[in-house]
Write a protein that binds this DNA or RNA. Structure first.
Lengths: 263, 263
DNA sequence: AAGTGTAAGCGTATGGTCTACGGAAAAGGA
DNA sequence: TCCTTTTCCGTAGACCATACGCTTACACTT
């Protein structure tokens, strides 16, 4: 039914896998052509897992199904990947990289708010393409190329604003947290719409009618007032989007205020 | 290993259970003392589930274990609760209620920012007490007394600021989203610290040393600069807290600006 | 006091999950 | 040909939610 990210935390095994493309020699401590030949590549395993998770969700991405989709036995996967948690780390870093955020010396829009907007847009697109990201904790992310490219890009958008290093880091963290949270909530909603076949607004509508049975006007005067003044008229989806945009613009205003004070 | 919230979505069955304390008569369509006597109450089931989830996490809260802790068979629980998803909804509304946010005509601090701070504080305490909340989706919450009390309180903190009903609702949604997100991330970190026995900062430290093996200065000039200027010196936990507080204060500033413009 | 209707309690079965273990199979080198 | 090394993978153990249907307990009627 579900998924939680229980990190086995063995950096020595997972880091070489994460960095296999930029530093492929690192895992070359085994004699070249000795023993049975491999039928797959790690990339193929990650791609197959991604395809399943994208299509049916992280819960449906069992080791059984990944193996079956590759035509191998389940346990074969464990010769490519230490554990399922590690496979998920590899998937995450893969899709982080897919955003193709501009690197140093690559062209990017001006001014910095546009650069932040680019990051936000690509990140939201990433969550839409890979809704399962919602279920992956971000507090201990995979230390891979995709994650480092993100931090570099977000920091670099603010690099010329004259913030102190401390402020710069704080601001970058606030931006990342805000953007991923917003994307995560949007995704959550989309995912439920698909899995239940019921739109978000329809879900609320259904409950709105029912809760009138239980709603006590005395205990909820403000809600009642807002209700009667039409404050709830727009769909919930719409309202959430507006709320997030409002909050995000205020955060960027706040950062901008720091720069003018500093400069 | 994990948990996902797959809502069966049967409002007719779950709503009377959610509102059982404020409207106990609602479920009284069965003749009173007919048939075998119940061994438990719904409250006892919810309490037992809460105890397990608080202690060992939502993943460890299996129907098996809840039943065992109550000394009944597993399937007995299904005479109290339609499904596990519904049981989780009941747990959520229970802890939302536990915050005991001031109702209408109950004393509360002034000015409104202090009222918002009260909400934020209680909510964060709730997440600390019940870390499993992190894994429960908030986009389709249980429509129970606790959830309605929250919306009423947050809306009421802004009731006297002269915002339009639309603005009021948007602002309240932004505040709720921000607070729950922050609490959620903090909790996530705490939970991992307990379950892995490794502090957040220690985890980063361990990886920081290892990634120097893979870190490419050319590709990450800004990170390098921030690093060398000491921008990463404070612990990650600390930095995240600062970032969130910064963002939250900017959001409240933005709301305040709306009120002065309106009044 | 016996019988009956009703609801609660719960054992079993189904079809999943991850992964430890150990044996089988394939490849290169001697 | 045989040995070493590596991959491949079947089996098994210990979990999970819940559909189904039988057993048990209780209140009311006769």
């Amino acid at each position: 039914m579900g998924v939680e990210h229980s990190g086995r935390a063995d950096p020595d095994r997972i880091l070489p896998l994460l960095w296999r493309h930029t530093r492929p020699v690192a895992a070359d401590d085994s004699r070249p052509g000795l023993g049975r030949r491999r039928r797959l590549t790690l990339d193929a395993v990650v791609a197959a897992a991604l395809a399943l998770a994208d299509a049916d969700g992280l819960a449906a991405m069992s080791m059984n199904r990944v193996a079956a989709s590759l035509g191998v036995g389940t346990m074969t996967l464990y010769t490519y990947v230490p554990s399922k948690a590690d496979l998920i780390d590899l998937m995450v870093d893969e899709v982080l990289t897919e955003r193709a955020l501009p690197g140093p010396s690559e062209p990017r829009p001006e001014p910095w708010r546009e650069q932040v907007a680019l990051y936000a847009e690509r990140t939201r697109a990433m969550y839409r393409r890979h809704p399962w990201l919602r279920h992956v904790s971000t507090v201990r992310p995979p230390i891979g190329p995709g994650m480092l490219a993100e931090r570099e890009y977000v920091l670099s958008t603010l690099a010329d604003t004259g913030l102190t290093p401390q402020q710069l880091n704080t601001a970058a963290l606030a931006i990342t947290a805000f953007v991923t949270t917003t994307a995560s909530l949007e995704t959550d909603s989309d995912e439920l719409e698909r899995s239940t076949g019921q739109s978000h607004d329809a879900w609320w509508q259904e409950r709105t009618q029912l809760w009138e049975e239980y709603f006590d006007v005395e205990r909820h005067p403000t809600m009642t007032r807002v209700w009667n003044s039409g404050g709830f008229d727009r769909g919930t989806t719409d309202q959430m989007a507006t709320a997030h945009e409002f909050g995000f613009e205020r955060l960027l205003d706040g950062i901008e205020a720091l720069t003018t004070r500093a400069g």
